[in-house]
Simulated scan of single mutants.
Amino acid sequence: MKRISSALLTLAILCMQSPSSARELREYTLKKKIDTSDLIFVGNVLAIERPKQETEGVQEFAVVRVTESIKGAEQGKELRFVVKGSIGEDSPDCCLVGSDYLFFSKDGVQILTLEGSSIGGKIDLQGKYVSPSNGKFSTYPIVSGLVRDWPGKDLGPAEPLASVRKEICEALRESKGTEVSKPLP
């Protein structure tokens, strides 16, 4: 009986020590990424900054110049892309100044709210900031025309930007009511 109690105690401890899947962010399918993104674009990171005054939901942002718009972004425009916000899991794995990335983003910032005893969220600051649409799976580095870590590939290999753009544009066309900013070459 003592062995069974010890085994159950050990099992309970192991279960409590394993990472919680409830807080684990999963990568969306390409279709869901497109559907949840207001803007999809290639951009060059000009700077990493902090808001001049305290801004709820924004601790750090990248100033990004849009070099190519795929959905919703204006080419040549500078955007403030949140890289560190109030929700840790929503922070992307980017951005290095001078580097190019493929961005999947939504207009505004996700802000935590507390109503009664329930925690929720809302989108605020539309038009002032853009934020990741799928947390760390919202940005993909581009080096020498190759998109690194594109879904469906093992970490490390890269896919040509032209192929990735074509895949996104085809998925956009299949998505009802979505316009492609730039036609396929």
Rank of each mutant, 00 (worst) to 15 (best):
R3E: 15
S5Y: 15
L9Y: 13
T10G: 08
T10D: 04
T10F: 15
L11D: 06
A12Y: 10
A22K: 13
R23A: 15
Y28T: 06
L30R: 08
I34K: 00
L39R: 08
F41M: 04
F41A: 07
V42Q: 01
G43M: 00
N44W: 10
N44G: 13
N44E: 11
L46P: 04
I48K: 01
E49D: 13
P51D: 05
K52R: 14
E54F: 15
Q59T: 09
V63G: 01
T67K: 09
T67Q: 05
T67V: 13
T67F: 12
E68F: 09
K71Q: 02
E74M: 10
E74K: 14
E74S: 14
Q75C: 07
G76E: 07
K77G: 04
E78M: 09
R80C: 08
S86L: 04
S86I: 07
D90L: 07
S91E: 05
D93V: 09
L96A: 12
V97Y: 08
G98I: 10
G98K: 07
D100A: 04
D100W: 00
Y101Q: 01
K106F: 15
K106L: 14
D107Y: 07
V109L: 05
Q110K: 12
T113R: 02
E115Y: 08
E115D: 14
S117T: 10
G121P: 00
Y129T: 11
S131W: 06
N134V: 07
G135V: 01
K136C: 06
F137A: 03
S138K: 01
S138T: 01
S138Y: 00
T139A: 12
Y140K: 02
P141F: 09
G145V: 11
L146F: 13
V147E: 00
R148W: 15
R148L: 14
K153N: 15
P157V: 09
P160R: 03
R165E: 02
S175C: 10
T178P: 00
T178H: 15
E179S: 14
S181P: 02
K182V: 09
K182M: 05
